[in-house]
């Protein structure tokens, strides 16, 4: 009986160890996917920031050029005699 009980305990321990390894494998998979998701979010943040910076630069350039054009047009409209000659 004692021998049979020892075998049963060994089997139970083996099953528990196997389940524990399966759980560890599952957790490692989940953590790996979460890390991949985190990397994707970091990369997406960098890309989006870069795009936003370029867009901001273009908008600044456009704003300056528009201001220059406004000044030129205002100067031209302030001197209508330049177009009547």
């Amino acid at each position: 009986m004692a021998r049979a009980g020892g075998i049963t305990n060994a089997v139970n321990v083996g099953i528990a160890v196997q389940a524990d390894w399966e759980n560890r494998e599952f957790v490692s998979h989940i953590s790996l996917n979460v890390r991949r998701l985190f990397d994707f979010l970091v990369q997406f943040e960098a890309t989006t920031k870069n795009k936003l910076a370029k867009l901001n630069e273009k908008l600044d350039t456009l704003e300056r050029r528009l201001e220059l054009l406004e000044v030129q047009v205002g100067t031209a409209t302030a001197n209508p005699a330049m177009f009547t000659t």
Partner: peptide
């Protein structure tokens, strides 16, 4: 996890699309 990946993919795609539209609009304005 799958749901989070779906949400993040959808949001990132929309953000990327919106940025591209803005860049195209700025290029047209230029």
């Amino acid at each position: 996890l799958v749901n989070t990946v779906d949400h993040l993919g959808s949001v990132s795609y929309k953000v990327n699309d919106l940025l591209d539209e803005l860049v195209d609009e700025v290029s047209g304005t230029e």
